[in-house]
Simulated scan of single mutants.
Amino acid sequence: MDFSSNSQATPEWSIKEISAYLKHTSITQTRAYIARIFGVDGTSSYLGGQNGEKIKRWLSDVGIAAPFEELFLIDVSCHCGAVCFTVDVAPVEVNACECSICWRYGALWAYYDEPSVTFPADIDSTDTYTDMCNEHRLEFHRCSFCGCVTHWRAVDGSQPRIGVNALMMPPDLIAEARFLRNGQPAE
């Protein structure tokens, strides 16, 4: 079987062939395949109601052992992998903030409510830098080893969200996102 990025699993394949295909594809390709088979669109469609139950049974049949919800989490990682965490959905929008610090970091920010971002309990491989950014005091986190800026948090809790550098996500996930510049649609 050809597991190149151009190959497409087809409904006529056996369970064994589908299982082998899914084990050799990216999470985005797996989601796209599931969406095509089950006619779903978006994370809530995957997780909810009858679709969710059908997809769970199907994943079990093809031998995908990961907990169902974890299959749809998005991995965020610095270059060296020392800083890894997950977000619960791909970004719909990414923002190129042009304040003095973000301009220098060159980040594309995806914004999440805190419960949507899951950090491992032992994440201690970040250095932080605190700065004012658009009237908010933010703590920017970067990997202590490779230096990639991964995320920011509000220092004083005034901002109930986390900025995640979408450039630390798989590129095919952010390719679908709407691009903003300073919070406005980019032209």
Rank of each mutant, 00 (worst) to 15 (best):
M1W: 14
S5G: 05
Q8G: 08
A9P: 06
S14A: 06
S14M: 06
S19W: 01
S19G: 14
A20G: 09
A20K: 13
A20C: 15
A20P: 01
L22T: 11
K23P: 01
K23T: 14
T25H: 10
I27G: 05
I27H: 03
Q29C: 11
T30V: 15
T30G: 09
A32S: 09
I34S: 00
I34M: 08
A35K: 04
R36C: 08
R36D: 15
R36V: 05
R36Y: 13
R36F: 09
I37Y: 12
F38Y: 06
G39R: 11
S44W: 05
S44H: 08
S45F: 04
L47E: 05
G48N: 15
G48Y: 05
Q50M: 11
G52L: 07
E53N: 11
R57H: 13
R57D: 15
L59Q: 01
L59F: 08
V62P: 00
G63M: 12
I64S: 07
A66Q: 09
A66D: 12
E69F: 03
E70S: 13
L71Q: 06
L71N: 02
V76E: 05
H79Q: 12
C80Q: 03
G81T: 07
A82V: 08
C84L: 06
F85D: 00
F85N: 02
T86L: 04
D88G: 06
V89P: 00
V92M: 12
V94E: 01
A96Y: 04
C97M: 07
C97V: 09
E98F: 05
E98H: 14
E98G: 11
S100T: 14
I101D: 00
C102S: 02
R104H: 12
R104W: 08
G106P: 07
A107Y: 01
L108P: 00
W109G: 02
A110K: 01
A110Q: 01
D113C: 04
P115F: 02
P115I: 11
S116G: 06
S116Q: 15
P120M: 08
A121M: 02
A121K: 09
D122T: 13
I123T: 09
D124P: 00
D124A: 12
S125V: 01
T126W: 04
T130D: 08
T130Q: 14
D131Q: 10
M132G: 07
C133D: 03
E135R: 13
H136L: 01
H136S: 01
R137P: 03
L138Y: 02
L138K: 00
L138D: 00
F140I: 14
H141G: 08
H141K: 13
H141Q: 09
R142W: 07
S144T: 13
S144G: 11
F145Q: 12
F145K: 13
C146A: 10
C148I: 15
V149S: 09
V149C: 10
T150S: 09
H151T: 07
H151R: 07
R153Q: 10
V155L: 10
D156S: 10
G157M: 02
G157I: 09
S158D: 05
Q159E: 03
I162H: 00
I162C: 02
L167Y: 09
M169G: 03
M169P: 03
P170I: 03
P170Y: 06
P171T: 06
P171A: 15
D172Q: 14
D172K: 11
A175P: 05
A177H: 05
R178Y: 10
R178T: 13
F179N: 06
L180E: 04
R181P: 00
G183V: 10
P185T: 10
A186Y: 11
A186M: 11
